[in-house]
Design a protein around this nucleic acid. Structure first.
Lengths: 139, 139
DNA sequence: TTCCTTGCAAACGATTTGCATTGGA
DNA sequence: TCCAATGCAAATCGTTTGCAAGGAA
């Protein structure tokens, strides 16, 4: 899985360094978007470097930033790597887990989105569904 | 429309002051969530006061904060005032507009959400659909 | 009068940037 | 070798807080 990413970066003349590889591998290992401090716990790297790695990987289209209801910035691998999915957010602690719809569900969602967007005459570029719940720790 | 809000605050022993009224009226006048700086332009009030008013109104359940893909915090009136709706976000500038689904569409969305959440065994507390597009200015 | 609210300025936390050093092609 | 990447520390930006002054009950 790290191969296509290496090629993707190489094709853009961006180095796939130890630090960047570490960020990507950390993101591959988890089940949802992670904040810089959450990543910093797993990787003993200064935050400024994490921010820089994430910025480069973000520009390159390898990671994307996500801002949940608690305002924290969390990063995850882009959808071409991780696949299209949505998010399950805990109303208490803000933790985020990925949630994939079935192909059939996703299709129904697309229809809905297209229909509603068409009503106000805009062209859909993307969509995101967030399901808010309360995790066990926050019950 | 400001009447129920006045009563709501009064019932909680919270003063509906000039400054808070100004915030609520500004939010009533617009078509989507606004950031503190956007509000500050309309209201010649120090940002610290806006933040405080918004915090009080937020605790009281009159306004809610929203964090779009650009990370900016934007505030809007709570759904019991403004009605349930979703958001249309511009991928370029981050501007947000409200978008209400039809009752029928909303019902289909609910079903989808319940179905997907049930699959991973979580109890849905809320949901949010974000449609990303590109506004004219950002084309 | 008595609290609550506001304004200003200082404090904070997350993120960004400058600069000298290190690392990779 | 030579430019890009990193670490550290300082700077910045959005947001929060302390404190003294102004307003509502």
């Amino acid at each position: 899985m790290t191969e296509p990413i290496a090629r993707h970066l190489e094709a853009r003349g961006i180095r796939y360094t130890r630090a960047r590889r570490a960020v990507v591998e950390a993101l591959e290992a988890v089940d949802g978007p992670k904040s810089v401090s959450e990543l910093g716990d797993r990787l003993a790297v200064p935050q400024s470097s994490l921010y820089r790695s994430l910025a480069v990987l973000g520009d390159a289209g390898v990671v994307v930033a996500h801002h949940g209801p608690d305002g924290t910035t969390r990063f995850e691998l882009a959808e071409w790597i991780r696949g299209h999915h949505h998010h399950l957010v805990c109303a208490g602690c803000g933790a985020v887990r990925d949630l994939a719809l079935t192909a059939e569900e996703e299709e129904r969602l697309q229809e809905l989105v297209t229909e509603a967007a068409g009503r106000v005459d805009v062209e859909v570029e993307d969509h995101a569904l967030e399901i808010v719940h309360r995790c066990e720790e926050c019950r």
